[in-house]
Amino acid sequence: MYGWDDRGHVVGGAVTATSDRGVASVHGSLAVYPGTFDPFTPGHRDLVARARVVFDRIIVLLAVNADKRPTAEATTRAARVRDAMPAAWGNVEVDTWTGLTASYCLGRGATVIVRGLRTAADLSHEYQLAAMNEQLGMQTVWLPSRPQLTATSSTVARAYRSAQSARPSLTAEA
């Protein structure tokens, strides 16, 4: 049910801009931002930065997916994600999970799944995930990537890192 808080913000399922053009959080909300985060990119960090002001709390959930072959174990990736978060972001938690994201969310009492959209091509896949999660009892909120961050996906970041490590040294021997 929707309602108004004492500051004139819609609560219970919607977010509105405040008078100073900031965003008011959905009171009592817990959002989950799932992904493999291999690696955790500046785009991922930006999405967490924006989601953490919309929702009271956010969990960055590292999905453990047997179909994907991450470059590091989930605990190592989780530590890297934690290291990427400023200490002042006290409402952000990092966790790992094997299984359906919706099951994790329902078990933790989350109110929404947050997903990022980099391009229009992402929408088809994300729509299918959102429809499945809705059938399982979880709503999805999509946040678009900032234009300057759309070019770098985790796949591109891994390929770049791999190319850099395979590249011969540029130091000339005399």
Rank of each mutant, 00 (worst) to 15 (best):
T71S: 15
T71N: 14
A72Y: 10
A72E: 13
A72I: 04
A74W: 09
T75C: 12
T75S: 13
R77A: 03
A78V: 03
A78T: 02
A79N: 09
R80K: 12
V81R: 05
R82D: 07
A84Q: 07
A84Y: 01
A87F: 08
A88R: 13
A88W: 05
A88I: 07
A88H: 11
W89H: 06
W89I: 07
G90W: 04
G90L: 04
E93P: 00
T98C: 12
G99E: 10
G99D: 06
G99W: 07
G99Y: 06
T101Q: 04
A102Y: 06
S103C: 03
Y104H: 12
Y104Q: 03
C105H: 02
L106N: 12
L106T: 14
L106F: 07
G107Q: 11
G109I: 11
G109K: 09
A110V: 09
T111E: 05
V112C: 12
I113D: 05
I113P: 04
V114Q: 01
V114L: 02
R115I: 04
R115W: 03
R115L: 01
R115E: 06
G116K: 02
G116S: 04
L117I: 15
L117V: 15
L117T: 12
L117Y: 05
T119L: 06
A121F: 00
D122T: 12
D122N: 08
L123H: 11
E126V: 10
E126C: 03
E126N: 03
Y127W: 10
Q128F: 02
Q128A: 15
Q128Y: 01
L129Q: 14
A130K: 02
A131S: 12
A131T: 14
M132D: 00
N133P: 00
N133I: 01
E134Y: 08
Q135A: 14
Q135P: 04
Q135Y: 11
L136M: 15
L136N: 09
G137L: 10
M138D: 07
Q139P: 00
L143N: 08
L143H: 01
L143A: 07
L143F: 09
P144S: 12
S145L: 11
S145M: 13
R146D: 15
P147H: 12
P147L: 13
T150W: 00
A151C: 06
T152N: 06
S153D: 08
S154P: 11
